[in-house]
Structure formats: C-alpha cells, structure tokens
Design a protein around this nucleic acid. Structure first.
Lengths: 337, 337
DNA sequence: TCTATAATTGGAACTGGTTCCAGTATAGCA
DNA sequence: TGCTATACTGGAACCAGTTCCAATTATAGA
C-alpha cells in the first residue's frame, strides 16, 4: 500500500539508515544524498508512519487529558490553555471526557495503563490514595490541574481562601445572612471534586471569623448546573428569613441564582447580592461579581510542569498555586447594617 | 522495564500466542491455561502496550478532530457529541485546535499524513479543492461537520435556509429595516468558514423575496466575538436611519448586539429586535430568540458517518442535513407596520 | 604517495504486539 | 487398539520505524 522507508531506500539506492536520517534532519547526510532521498520521498508520496515511529522511539508525542464535563466553560478554558501549550511543543492532545463516576474510575485506571500517551493531565478530579499509587506504578508522568493529591504535582488555586475572599467581601458590604450554593455532595464524593467543598470551607471560616454562626439551611447543594442552582436558590430565597446575599461556588451556578431572583422578582443587587466563582467569559457580560481564577494559565502551567516532569521524571515534586482575585461588578451591593 | 508479552509467556511457561489470545479474550485457550496466564499478568503487573498493539494491527483506535476556536460554545457542544459517540465505540479523541490561518493549513496538511488516527473529523472548516485531493490521497476517512466540500461526506445544516428563516421571521413581525452582523470576511476567506456567509445569503434572499432591497450599510462584518459585534451593532444603531431589528450570525454575536442596545439605552425588544443563531446554552438564559441547530447531534452523527466510512471506505458518499428550528423568545417583537 | 582522521553510509538488531501455520494432546468412535 | 476430528498450544514472521556499529569514502597533512 503506502510506501515505507524501505521502498524509499530501495528506489533512491541508499540504505535504510540514510532515509531515516534525512527524515529526521540529521546532519550526518551529504547534501547530494539528502536531495536524492527527498526527491524519491516526494515521488513516492511517502509519509513516515507515526505509529511505527512512536513504537520505535517508545514515545507517542501525545499527552492525555482526563476532564470531567469538558463542556463546562471553566474546563474548556483550561483545555484551551493545555492545547495551546502542547501544540507549541509539538505534542498532540487526547481528551477523555468524564461524565459519570464509573467512567471517572475507568479512565483513571485505564488511560495511564494503555500507554497511549507520554504524559497525563487530570483536571478537577482528585485521585484517591490508592489511585495515586496505581498511577505512580505505571511510571507515567502525571500533573493535576485544579485538584490536589499527596505526592502528585499540580497547579491549583487556594479554594478555601477563594471561598473566604468571596464571603468576606459580602460581609464587608454589610451582609450577615449569606447563602451558599455548591455542588452535589454525592458528586463530590463519587468524582472526588474538591473545589466546591473547599470553597464552602472558606465560606464557613469567614463567617465564623466575623462572628456569624453558619446556618445549615443556608448551605445548599445540587448538581452543577444553572437549572439546579436556580431551584436551590429559590428555596433559599423563600425561607422565612432569606439570605440577603448568595455565594455560588461557580459562575454557572451564580447564573441560576440570578434566574431565581428574576423568578421571585427580587432586584439584584438591590434586594439580593450574588457572587460567583471562576470569572468565565459570560460573567463580564452579565456584570457578575466573582472570584477570578486564571483558567487558561492553569492549563498552560500544567503542561509546563508536565513537560518538565516528562523530561526528568525524578524531578522534585512541584506544586503551584495560581493567584485569585475578586472582581467586583454589578451583582453585589452594600446594604444598610 | 515494564513487562512484555514475552515475559509473561516465559513466566507462565506458555507460548507468545497463548498470552496474546488470553489478552484478546480468544476462546481458543483452555480455562486452566487462561487462569495461569491471568495470574502471571497480575503478578507482573503487565499492561499490553497500546502502541505496539496499534502498530501491529495497523490501527490507532483514535480519531482526530480539527476544530477552529474550540472554546466557542457551538464548537464545544459539537465536540461533546463527538467524544460521547467515540467513547462508546472505544475510540480515543485527539483534538487539534485552530486559531490562525497558518495553523489551519498546517493541520489540514499534516494531521492526515501523520497517520496518528484512523479517521478525521473536520469542524466548520471547508477544505479547498486541492486540499480535498490531498486528503483523499492519504486514504484517511474524513467527515466534515458544519462544512461542505465536493466529494467529502459531511453533516451540516442548510445555512442559507437558516438565514432566510431568521430574516423571514423578522419580516413577518413587521420589520423592514433589518441589520445583519456576521464574521469578518477576511476570516471567512482565510479559514474558509462558510456558515456566516451562507446565512448572509439567506438574509439577502429573504429580503429580496419580500420586496425589501438589501442595503450595504446594514451588513456588517467583524471578528467573531461579543465585543466586536457590540461595536458593529453600535455603528448600525447610530445610523441616521437605524435598523429596527438585527440578525446576528451567531448567538455570541447576538450577545454583543444586546450589549450595544444596553449601551445606547435601547429597550429590547421594544425598540430593537434581536435574533441569533445556534441556540447555545446561554441563549435560553438570556431569552434570546434564535435559530436552533442540533450541535451535539452533529458531532454524534459525524462520528457515525465516520465509523461507517472507516469500516467501508468505498461506501457511497453520504451527506446529511440536520434540521433547524426557530426558537422564538423574548428579544424579538412585532412592530407597528 | 601514504596515513590518519573525519564524513558518510549500509543494514542488522530492536521495539512489543498479532497472526497464522504447524504440531501435540485428547476425546470419540469403530 | 487404531484412527480421526477437535481442542489447544508454540513460535516464526511481520508491522515500519530508529539506532548503532562497522565499513567505506573523502579529505587533510606529512
């Protein structure tokens, strides 16, 4: 079928090694020979087989990424950073999308073992200790993005501090009754998502530090989505003593809160302050106050760490924290004490 | 290093072929032998090398996708459909993101030649005739999604009809001065995007059919983005005789139009009707009237076509048109004749 | 002109699976 | 008991590159 390196060698009247050297731009070929080989390559329309190349080299020039719900805007933006950084390094990106706990487990187990990739990035999913061991056993370099595990390198933010930052801001605006809407606890358990949980921790810490006892009924959890957050927010806002501000663990969920306010004809920010998390693209459009994290950069930095680790697997474990920043926009407002 | 099939064979005291048969669940192995081999596999923590497997089989079990601006909501949704369909077929997905014309050309040229994948999906980029030839020469099965080229199979919608549908709706609501905002013509040329151009055609046809002469100053083009659309819309709305309705070639651009209306304190839909295209996730949130296309399904169907073509490369060329639908929401309104 | 050195070149061995053919063991049957 | 069909099993050959060592040729220097 397709021409192989041997065909090229035969037609050009040179050895196998010479063709290989031409393909790889080795300087150890004379100008004349190189040209002859190149001519034959063009004539036979020869394309080196990536697979054979990978096999021979023991490298795939590919990096795998496991991402939960890769259509979530925050995940997409991280992926974009990953792709950009990989492409500039000549690596291809294989994406595994995870939308069920079963698939989470099978991806975490099988992707590293399949040796399809030279490195692995895991977004937002924290491997359990036994999974970490299994990962390490495969010898595949791994970097976590937006997730943390002992003895694995990673790029994250301090979600607890982020949750506290959002909450402190609301407190500083005079709010005392502050609600929280975060991910479903069952999802947090089965996927081992940690960010919503940590943001909740920060929320609680900030309340306690301000002398405000956290109330259980102010803390709601639901599937990560606009609609679910809308329902939860409606519940919160219909409490006998409703919160005057709501901190949503993501901008997507904050959008649900805004919808709930609209449903109940509550003016934002006059009657309700809303703060989100992530600063995704539409947040600016909506004028949503939020905590900005550097999503694109998290992907880029993750790739840098990974490439470093691939070059030197025994390098010391690096863990990087990206900065977060409060972006005050129009959905939050000071209220009379 | 890692155990190979030969190690397993040696330790288990069986032949190479037997281990291979066990791995591949061939029935031609006795129960006792199978168990012994499985034990040794577990003991040595043996993982078959995907690369070697691919090499030997001549298949990569991978499908490549070339997508422009893969963070655009519409593209993401298509990718999700692709990933879902591929995962259920046991294929992995390699994503190539294209954000410059140079990269468009290099991807279209190099990805098929690299033989990294058993099939290729191309989203929203229409290959030129010479590129089609080059693609066909590689023998790699290709399917286009949201793009059209002679002699390549594909899944698309009828963008001309979509543009007409949107425009006819505005006309039916009594609008006569209807603006259009679409992609930059230079981008259309260099990436060979066609959908915005076709939607413009439909717009013009609908106007002509209704006896309304299209006006050049009502047709604006800019980089695909909210901000750019906002600027263009402001220009349109500040014309001496501004349009009473604007059709944006995508929901993202429609969002920019809404911002422009906000900037100029024009009430939507009372003073300005706005219609978008795609029905992306936020469209519902914004109450945006739009033309819905089945993005997720386009990815799924693209994969189905591709798998069919991979199984039988000489199958007849299939081209599938997905339905479109007008979703009337709150940004459009009838005006007094 | 001869030798030492450098510049090229050829091709065997190797990567780790799959496949297929030939060989062996076992069971069934006359 | 011998013969045959069937069930397993072993391993050479193969996939298409890379690498490295040995061989060859060219060049420089004496």
């Amino acid at each position: 079928m397709a021409a192989t390196i041997r065909d090229v060698a035969r037609v050009a009247g040179v050895g196998l090694g010479t063709v290989s050297r031409v393909i790889n731009n080795s300087p150890l070929v004379s100008q004349a020979t190189r040209q002859r080989v190149l001519d034959v390559i063009a004539e036979l329309r020869y394309n080196p087989s990536q697979i054979a190349r990978s096999f021979s080299l023991g490298k795939t020039l590919t990096v795998a990424t496991i991402a939960p719900f890769f259509t979530r805007p925050s995940v997409v933006e991280r992926l974009r950073g990953i792709e950009a950084a990989l492409a500039s390094g000549g690596y291809a990106l294989v994406v595994f999308n995870v939308e069920t706990p079963t698939r989470r487990d099978s991806c975490l187990r099988d992707v590293p073992r399949s040796q399809r990739a030279d490195g692995l990035l895991i977004i937002s999913l924290a491997p359990q200790p036994d999974e970490v061991l299994a990962l390490q056993e495969t010898g595949l370099p791994v970097v976590l993005i937006d997730a943390y595990a002992d003895s694995l390198p990673g790029v994250t933010i301090d979600d607890v501090a982020g949750g506290a930052l959002a909450t402190e801001y609301l407190i500083a605006l005079g709010h005392r009754r502050i609600g929280f809407i975060g991910d479903l606890i069952a999802d947090e358990m089965s996927f081992n998502f940690t960010s919503s949980r940590h943001r909740l921790e920060g929320y609680q810490q900030a309340l306690v530090a301000a002398g405000i006892p956290p109330r259980d009924e102010y803390q709601q959890h639901g599937l990560h989505g606009r609609y679910e957050a809308r329902v939860l927010a409606r519940d919160l806002l219909e409490l006998p003593e409703p919160p005057t501000a709501i901190f949503a663990a993501s901008d997507t969920q904050a959008m649900g809160v805004l919808e709930a306010a609209r449903d109940l004809e509550l003016a934002v920010p006059d009657q309700l302050s809303v703060i989100g998390f992530d600063d995704i693209d539409v947040a600016e459009y909506l004028g949503l106050t939020t905590i900005r994290q550097l999503l694109f950069e998290s992907g880029e930095r993750g790739v840098e760490l990974l490439l470093k680790r691939m070059a030197n697997p025994s390098a010391k474990l690096e863990r990087e924290y990206l900065p977060i920043e409060l972006i005050a926009r129009g959905t939050t407002r000071r209220i009379a004490g």
